[in-house]
Simulated scan of single mutants.
Amino acid sequence: MSSKLPENKGKNQEPFNEFRTMMNEFFHMRPVKGFLQSIDEFFQMPLPSFPVQLRETDDEQVIIAELPGIKREQISIDVLERSITISVKNTEEIIEENESENYYKKSKSMQQMTRNIYLGQPIDEKRVKATYQNGLLKIRVPKQKGKKIDIYEN
Rank of each mutant, 00 (worst) to 15 (best):
M45E: 09
M45H: 04
R30G: 01
S38A: 13
P142T: 11
L136N: 11
S107F: 05
T114W: 01
G34V: 00
E96A: 05
E101A: 14
E7H: 10
Q144W: 01
K148M: 10
I117L: 11
M22W: 03
R72G: 00
V62S: 06
V141L: 07
E73P: 00
M29P: 03
V62H: 02
I139A: 12
F26K: 13
Q61P: 04
V52H: 05
V62T: 10
F19D: 09
M29D: 15
E125L: 04
I149N: 08
E7K: 15
N98S: 14
I64N: 02
T57N: 11
E25C: 10
I151G: 00
E99V: 15
Q74K: 02
V52Q: 04
I139F: 12
R82W: 06
V79S: 12
Q121R: 11
L36K: 12
N102D: 14
Q121I: 05
N12S: 13
I151W: 10
E96P: 01
S87D: 03
V52A: 10
I64R: 03
Y103E: 00
E25R: 15
E25I: 13
K33W: 07
D40R: 14
F27W: 07
I39M: 09
P48T: 01
R127P: 02
L67K: 03
E60C: 12
S2H: 11
M29S: 15
T85Y: 01
Q53V: 08
P31V: 13
I123S: 06
A65N: 03
